[in-house]
Design a protein around this nucleic acid. Structure first.
Lengths: 349, 349
DNA sequence: GTGAAAGCGCTAACAC
DNA sequence: GTGTTAGCGCTTTCAC
């Protein structure tokens, strides 16, 4: 572990180039109005000295950090159960990088961490925050608001207090669910069941709503509660099969759930998709492609969600962001942006 | 997106408490030698004003940031193919949090990003770096070294230039592989094949070495090259079966590979584990538990690796880290720390 | 034990 | 166009 060498300052560069600090500063920050000859001298001096601006000094005066916090509750979300969060992070990272912003990752494990996150956010270390809030009673959002930091949420926040300045990005869970169920009805299926996710998460609630949109008159018993895990999918599938031995289709709230359901169906001697058609949600590759048969499922643009979150935040921060005509973001302050989903047909339905 | 309110400064607190800035600074930084009465007054003022230190100002003088960069090459590693990296991140985050350090995530997509990362690291924004370097020819390590930032590597670096100041944390890939293969021989298997990972990654190379440790005299044909994906596992399994229709066991370099192998075995009418026993590596839950049959595999303490990386870095940074008697880290500057692996028995072998 | 004062390295008015 | 100067908010000698 090497020691950090003393780094050259603006002053040093100025001296070497024979100009004032102000001029060096202008050149370094790409300002206009410096004669080419001088600018070149400065650039050469920067090069020779290996000068790198001291961000702390800069932030102290500009009050900008070019850094954004990404806040996620680790145990409660499925952050680490699947690559979902990782993909969002990737999208966020790409977008932030493109605009020279750093990504500060704040993972919370429990209540003790909330105070810490609040303090950090309030501490003015970052210019904004990207917050993943998937639970109805998540304390994080309130906290972030209290900190007074510009924020974009990932996933539709559960609370809805009428404030229209809450910016969030979500994928079209409800529409995706509708598409899935319609696909099933299109296949001629008539006894279609749904295994939900944990209904305190808006994504799960929205998918259930989408199911109901299409199957408004379905028996209540055709909806079984799952928890986004394959074990939960197994349990729910058993329940459903016990109640409705003649069901011919299942829409599972996510791919893991579908994988569990698939196992139970096989165990009970049902052929998929012949006897029972199955559709999942997420298109989580390591799962959806590995099941037997491979899963027909609803794909969301997860990375795109991440990118968009970052973009919206940066835009709100008055950074120079390219206009974004494709995502349907309205001018002004969009409250929520919903990304489309697409049905991916494989063998299970 | 709310605006940031003007925050109170040390000065303001000092005035309110009727003391000097120096005294407030001492109290805030937990220094000794301030009379209790005064300290209390200061703390109250801090509370009332909602004072939070300005980190930029502090860094400017202390030259510390209490921040650590985590650098990972995104497309080349399996960073986002599975929850592996996410779990390490979690471990890292926990440890950093416990020592009041922030985590700055630097994801690189390709060569263009390297310069950026180098600049950032050299820019003195962080006190140290945690670098995931899984490829033999990864440019990142050299870059990080050039930046002169204290660093701990995740995974045994491929290069080995004799410098013993390279600190890294890895899990016992070789030992784990040995355990896996021994398990197979213990089962009475005699024709044991190995599907490797991409051999330019040290983890894959080490697992192959472990296989060879136990099966020194195995036919070269019993080793087929995979790439850590299930598709690669399928291809390799087909090859192996074509060459050795009588093989009775397979050690796959990771769980995804094993999942692919399992599919081909089923397709070819081999019963697992009766005809062919299969062992994977990683214990990547969403895969290992979902395969049919569930996978016997080698588990690594992934989160523990992350924690340990962070701990070693912080220690090298002279932070107050608790002594760590359990992991076998020697005093002084340990070069490489290898975490143990354990065999997890399920149904496939 | 406490305060005064000197910067840390940079940007942004403001002169020239 | 370019230089001068005054801080940004904090820590840290060094007096007292």
């Amino acid at each position: 572990m090497t020691d950090t060498a003393p780094r050259p300052t603006l002053e040093a560069v100025a001296e070497r180039a024979g100009v004032s600090r102000a001029t060096v500063s202008r050149v370094v920050n790409g300002a206009h109005g410096v004669r080419d000859a001088l600018a070149d001298r400065v650039r050469r001096a920067v090069e020779e000295l290996g000068y790198v601006p001291n961000q702390a000094a800069r932030s102290l005066v500009t009050r900008r950090h070019d850094a954004v916090a990404v806040v996620a509750a680790e145990p409660e979300t499925r952050v680490f159960a699947d690559p979902y969060f990782a993909q969002q992070l990737r999208g966020i990272s790409k977008e932030l990088t493109a605009h020279d912003n750093q990504l500060v990752l704040l993972l919370t494990e429990g209540r003790e961490d909330h105070a810490r996150v609040g303090r950090y956010l309030a501490g003015g270390h970052v210019d904004g925050a990207l917050v993943f809030s998937l639970h109805l009673d998540d304390p994080l959002p309130g906290l972030v608001r209290g900190a007074g930091v510009p924020t974009v949420f990932g996933g539709r926040p559960g609370w809805d207090d009428g404030r229209d300045d809450v910016v969030y990005v979500d994928s079209d869970n409800r529409g995706g669910a509708r598409a899935a169920v319609r696909h099933l009805t299109g296949l001629g299926r008539t006894r279609i069941a749904h295994i939900t996710g944990p209904l305190d998460q808006t994504s799960a609630a929205d998918r259930l709503a989408g199911f109901r949109d299409v199957r408004a008159d379905a028996d209540a018993g055709l909806v079984a509660r799952g928890d986004f895990t394959s074990g939960g999918g197994e349990r729910a599938m058993r329940e459903l099969l016990d109640r409705y031995p003649d069901l011919d289709a299942v829409f599972a709230a996510n791919d893991l759930t579908a994988a569990g359901a698939l196992r139970v169906l096989r165990e009970r001697g049902r052929r998929v998709p012949d006897d029972v058609a199955v559709v999942g949600f997420d298109d989580m590759l390591p799962v959806a492609e590995e099941t037997d048969p491979p899963l027909t499922t609803v794909r969301q643009d997860i990375e795109g969600m991440g990118r968009l979150m970052a973009r919206l935040l940066l835009r709100g921060l008055d950074r120079d962001t390219a206009p974004e005509p494709t995502t349907g973001v309205s001018a002004g302050a969009p409250s929520g942006v919903i990304l489309p989903t697409t049905l991916v047909r494989r063998a299970s339905a």
